[in-house]
Simulated scan of single mutants.
Amino acid sequence: MEVQRTVGGFPDYYSGLGLDPQASPGAIARAYRSLLRRHHPDTRYRPESVEDANQHAVLLQRAMEAHAVLADPIRRARYDREHHPHPVLPPIPQPSAAPFRPASSPGSRPGGGESLSVSPLRWDPPTRRSI
């Protein structure tokens, strides 16, 4: 019986369908239909034994489970995020730890601080205009 590879203890749906993680939705559908024709009891030969029938049933179930996750964009994104992490990007360089000093403006005081005057917000209701 074929052993399905796992990623972190979870089944690897891409290898179950024989695909790589960058596969397009069309490639996922084609791989699923191919496995469905190969393992579905209505489209394959009569099993030679009960074990053979059970093996095809298990492989069909795995293909259906993989297709259910990978065909749905939201479930696929969640699966990719949790089970197929992308390589870690290098950290973004941080600026030097120099203290922040605002640029001087025309209204700034010579002592370094700026005098701020804040007027309260005022709301005037709209007036009724006749057209």
Rank of each mutant, 00 (worst) to 15 (best):
R5W: 03
P73G: 05
S115M: 05
R30H: 10
P87E: 13
Y45G: 15
V118S: 06
P120L: 00
I28F: 02
G107S: 12
R122F: 01
R128T: 14
D124Y: 04
Q94G: 05
P99E: 09
P85H: 09
E82K: 07
A97E: 11
F10D: 04
L59T: 15
L60G: 09
V58S: 04
P21A: 04
E48C: 04
A63C: 12
R76D: 02
S119A: 08
W123N: 02
L89G: 13
V88C: 07
E2N: 08
I74H: 03
F100V: 15
R81F: 07
R129G: 11
R76S: 02
G112E: 05
A57S: 14
D80G: 05
D12V: 11
Y79V: 09
P99C: 04
H40M: 10
N54L: 10
Q55F: 00
R75P: 03
S15H: 03
R129S: 12
P47D: 15
S24C: 08
D72K: 03
A63D: 10
A29E: 12
E48W: 07
P21W: 06
P73M: 12
F100P: 01
R128A: 10
V7T: 07
I92R: 08
M64G: 11
L89N: 08
T43I: 09
P90Q: 14
I131E: 12
H67P: 01
E65Y: 00
P87L: 08
R37I: 10
R5D: 02
A97C: 05
G107N: 14
D52S: 14
A97Q: 11
E82S: 08
S49N: 12
I131S: 10
H84F: 10
T43K: 13
L17G: 02
L17I: 13
R128E: 10
D12K: 03
S96H: 01
P120F: 00
P11W: 01
H86Y: 00
S105W: 08
Y45F: 08
Q22M: 08
G113D: 07
E65L: 14
G112H: 06
Q94W: 00
L59C: 13
P102T: 14
L121M: 00
L60P: 07
R37D: 15
R129L: 14
P41R: 13
F10P: 01
Y32K: 00
D124Q: 09
R5N: 04
A97V: 00
S115A: 08
G112S: 06
P41E: 13
R37H: 12
F10H: 10
G113C: 07
S115T: 12
R37L: 15
R76C: 03
R109N: 05
G9P: 01
A103R: 14
T43F: 08
A29R: 10
P85V: 12
P99D: 07
A66C: 12
S119Q: 13
R78C: 04
V69R: 01
L36F: 13
